[in-house]
Amino acid sequence: MNRAVDPRDLAMDGDGLAKGEVLLEVKNVSLRFGGVKAITDISFDIRKGEIRAIIGPNGAGKTSMLNVINGFYTPQEGTITFRGEERKKIAPYQAAASGIARTFQNVALFKGMTTLDNIMAGRTLAMHRNFLWQLLYFGPALNEEIANRRKVEEIIDFLEIQHIRKVPVGRLPYGLQKRVELGRALAAQPSLLLLDEPMAGMNLEEKEDMSRFILDVNSQFGTTIALIEHDMGVVMDISDRVVVLDYGRKIGDGTPDEVKANQDVIDAYLGVSHQDEGEG
């Protein structure tokens, strides 16, 4: 079943935006948990086709930011505009339907399911056949299943994980789990892909592989990516623009070089014992 992947096949559904236009805009967002201010008045944007890194020390509010973007948390203040639609509150499944997919800091795979089923799970929104057809597993339902299976196999080929296709993901080593999780997100053919520390806990070689996959996804499928990562080398290498958070506030925003030169950013990073492994 080895086949070169045709990029057109996996590209996200057209969202009508040209490269460089604003895809997502975060405006004055604040989020609190009881007394804890996770995010305070943050604004930034993500443009079509770019790799946008979000960095900051542990507890800076990066994961919370992603959770706000895909509707898992509802911010107390501020709005999110995605593909021109402004919203304040959105259910996670609606965010998914509008074209946002993500991976998680602590791998959140479906542990009891195989690699194949996990990636098929990513195609949930592409499958519509109703209950009765599903009961019969025949005709349209079977065709739909097979068409989606084909897409999933392309992703499996792309990520080079053919050999673990039928292995329950709970038994896979951590690095592979992260890769399967990326596959699951890609399966949704999102227009915005959120990656929460995709390289945490990986060795150098695995990191290089993962960086390559991220760059390939971006260039071949045209997927816009928001990336949280602690490894500065990787961030500076692969991202187009970087936004820096600290204690829930934005302290820097710009190209990697601009950010590197920003005094606030330097202070924040010197003041904090910075962990490479992420976790936190």
Partner: peptide, 12 residues
């Protein structure tokens, strides 16, 4: 069953 939060974020 396996991860309800992730399921919802995948559109379930």
């Amino acid at each position: 069953r396996d991860m309800d939060i992730a399921a919802e974020l995948m559109g379930v």
